[in-house]
């Protein structure tokens, strides 16, 4: 509210403090995502990226601070209702339901949809995006390759017809070809559906390439923020994250 913006703010995170027991993970973190924007979140291992995402999706709760979504405070709204209102997290390490088929995994993604008549349309969109999933739809999700699992996870997230996707470590443990394939798909989704994305990545190149704005998180503090293009030129970032 204090700093006027030309773009409509979709999600605003303000002064988050969070942690587990005595261990504090996040210190006064603030972050904003505008409608139709892709925001990147950079940071090394243990910087607190996943904790921040979990707080936005409602899996964890902050000690202090607030989260506003579409102008309403959602700090104490449960995960289920956040998903219903359009926030979807694609969890790190995919976290598919290994004992269910690909199709069942995808269908569960639309569990929160009030209007179930939209389900076939959404399913078609996902199968169109990843034809391989259509071929494997009867297969147990636990038997998919890493890349296919990531596709399935992304597909499951899209099934809830989200307004905001939180993508956690998309590239983790995947072959470059698979990463490229999924990034292409993500760009296509961004073009075709009017949504916003928060990309959390260790792969700084990828993160800055995808996003328009980015934040750098170090040991629980936001140390830098700005347009991604500028950050990509920042000597300090080039030194510590790009190894140049």
């Amino acid at each position: 509210m204090t700093e006027p913006r030309e773009k409509l703010e979709l999600l605003t995170v303000r002064d988050l403090d969070a942690g587990y027991g005595d261990a504090q993970i996040l210190w006064g973190v603030s972050l904003g995502i505008a409608q139709g924007e892709i925001v990147g979140l950079l940071g090394g291992n243990g910087a607190g990226k996943t904790t921040l995402l979990n707080i936005i999706s409602g899996l964890n709760s902050p000690k202090t601070g607030s989260i506003h979504y579409l102008g309403e405070e959602i700090t104490h709204v449960n995960t289920y209702n956040r998903v219903r209102s359009g926030i979807t997290q694609i969890p790190e390490g995919r976290q598919l339901f290994p004992g269910l088929t690909v199709r069942q995994n995808l269908l569960l993604g639309s569990f929160s949809l009030a209007d179930k008549s939209r389900v076939p349309e959404e399913l078609d969109f996902v199968f169109d995006l990843f034809p391989i999933l259509s071929e494997r739809q009867k297969q147990l999700a636990g038997t998919l390759s890493g890349g296919e699992q990531q596709m399935c996870a992304l597909g499951r997230g899209l099934m809830s017809n989200p307004k905001l996707i939180l993508v956690d470590e998309l590239s983790l443990g995947l072959a470059p070809v698979a990463v490229e394939r999924i990034v292409e798909a993500l760009k296509k989704v961004y073009r075709e559906k009017s949504l916003s994305i928060l990309v959390v990545e260790q792969d700084v190149h990828l993160c800055l390439e995808l996003s328009t704005t980015a934040y750098v998180l170090e040991t629980g503090h936001i140390v830098k923020q700005g347009p991604s293009e500028e950050l990509a030129k920042d000597p300090q970032i080039r030194k510590s994250y790009l190894g140049i």
């Binding site: 998903v83 979807t88 969890p91 976290q95 339901f97 004992g99 639309s110």
Partner: peptide, 19 residues
């Protein structure tokens, strides 16, 4: 299916919008 999903991966089930 939602029950099985909760059983297999509780957090993922939450994120899939399972109450």
């Amino acid at each position: 299916k939602a029950m099985r999903a909760t059983f297999q991966e509780k957090d993922a089930a939450l994120l899939a919008g399972v109450d």
